[in-house]
Deep mutational scan, measured.
Amino acid sequence: ETFPLDVLVNTAAEDLPRGVDPSRKENFLSDEDFKAVFGMTRSAFANLPLWKQQNLKKEKGLF
């Protein structure tokens, strides 16, 4: 299941849709939104070091 970017960005855990893991908001973006937000594919993002993934998520309001 995916959700629009505005539902996930800068949203407190208690305000997220049911079933969304607040530590993994990026997994609930569509592939198109994911690429638009991070400028890379999911596989490229997954290959980044964890610290870099976290920094990007913070920068984009998805942490």
Rank of each mutant, 00 (worst) to 15 (best):
T2Y: 15
A44I: 11
E1W: 12
D15L: 13
A46Q: 13
D15E: 11
Q53P: 00
P22Y: 03
N47H: 11
V7R: 08
K25W: 05
Q53E: 00
G61Y: 03
V7Q: 09
V20P: 07
L8M: 05
A46Y: 11
E26H: 02
E26C: 04
K52C: 12
A13I: 14
E32A: 12
K58A: 12
N10V: 09
P22M: 04
S43G: 12
M40Q: 04
P4R: 03
T41Q: 08
F45V: 00
T11W: 09
F38M: 07
E32V: 12
A46E: 10
A36C: 09
D15V: 01
S43E: 13
P17S: 01
P49Y: 01
V9H: 06
F38W: 01
G39Q: 14
R42V: 06
E59V: 09
P17H: 03
F63G: 15
L62C: 04
D31A: 11
W51E: 11
P49R: 01
E26N: 02
L5S: 04
D6G: 09
L16W: 05
T11F: 07
K25I: 15
L50Y: 12
D21T: 04
F28A: 09
R18D: 15
E59D: 11
K60V: 15
F38C: 01
D6P: 07
V20W: 05
V7P: 01
F63V: 09
D31K: 07
P17K: 01
D6S: 14
V20K: 04
D21V: 03
V20F: 05
D6I: 09
F34P: 00
E59W: 07
L50M: 12
D21L: 02
T11D: 07
D15A: 05
N47Q: 13
T41M: 10
K35H: 15
K57P: 00
R18E: 15
S23I: 07
K35C: 14
F38L: 08
N55V: 11
S43I: 13
P17A: 01
K60P: 01
V37P: 00
R24I: 07
K25T: 08
R42C: 04
S43Q: 14
V20M: 02
L16E: 06
K52I: 12
D21Q: 05
K58G: 07
L8T: 04
E32C: 08
A36P: 00
Q54I: 15
D21F: 01
G61W: 04
L56H: 04
F3S: 02
L48G: 00
Q53L: 00
G19F: 09
P4M: 04
T11Q: 07
Q53Y: 00
F45P: 00
P22C: 07
P17Q: 01
S43H: 13
V37I: 09
T2G: 05
V9I: 14
E26P: 02
A13L: 12
S30H: 07
E59C: 08
F28S: 13
L29D: 01
A13C: 15
G39V: 04
L5C: 06
A46L: 11
F63L: 14
L50G: 12
N55Q: 13
S30D: 09
E14G: 08
D31V: 08
K25D: 04
K35T: 13
L8K: 03
F34Q: 00
N10D: 08
R24N: 09
A12G: 10
D21P: 02
F3V: 03
E14T: 08
E59P: 01
P49G: 03
D31G: 06
R42A: 06
D15I: 01
E26A: 01
E59N: 08
L5P: 07
Q53S: 03
K58Q: 11
P4F: 03
G61F: 05
P22L: 04
Q54T: 14
N47W: 10
L8N: 04
V37F: 05
P22I: 07
V9P: 02
G19P: 09
Q54H: 11
E26W: 02
L48K: 04
Q54V: 14
F45A: 00
E26S: 02
A13H: 11
F3G: 03
K58T: 09
V9L: 10
F34T: 00
V9R: 07
W51T: 10
T11C: 11
L48S: 01
K25Y: 04
Q53N: 00
V9M: 11
S43F: 13
N27E: 12
E14Q: 12
V7F: 15
R42M: 06
T11K: 08
D31W: 02
L8C: 05
Q54M: 14
N55S: 13
A36F: 13
R24L: 09
V37K: 02
F38T: 01
P22K: 06
T11H: 08
R24F: 14
S23G: 12
W51Y: 12
L8Y: 02
G39T: 05
A13Q: 10
F28E: 05
D15M: 04
N10G: 09
N55H: 13
S30I: 05
L48V: 02
Q53G: 00
F38S: 00
W51M: 10
P4H: 05
L56I: 08
G61D: 06
E32H: 12
V9F: 06
E14M: 07
R42T: 04
L62R: 02
A36H: 12
A46I: 12
S23H: 15
V20A: 05
A44H: 12
S23E: 15
A46R: 12
D6L: 11
A12Q: 09
T2A: 08
G39Y: 07
W51Q: 10
T41R: 05
L56Q: 02
K57F: 04
V20I: 08
K25Q: 04
S43V: 13
G19W: 09
V7S: 08
E32G: 10
L48C: 02
G19A: 08
K57S: 03
L50R: 09
N47P: 00
G39C: 12
T2D: 03
S23A: 13
V37N: 04
Q54N: 14
P4G: 06
F34M: 01
F28N: 07
S43N: 13
K25P: 07
D6Y: 14
A44R: 09
L16S: 04
R18Q: 15
K52F: 14
R24P: 03
N55D: 13
A44W: 08
S43L: 13
Q54E: 14
D6K: 10
V9S: 06
V9N: 06
K35D: 15
A12P: 13
N10R: 02
A12F: 06
V20Q: 05
D33C: 05
D33W: 03
N47C: 14
A12K: 13
L29N: 01
D15T: 03
A44K: 10
F63T: 13
T11E: 06
D21G: 01
F45T: 00
S43A: 14
L29S: 01
D21I: 04
Q53W: 00
L56K: 08
K60G: 06
L16A: 03
A44D: 12
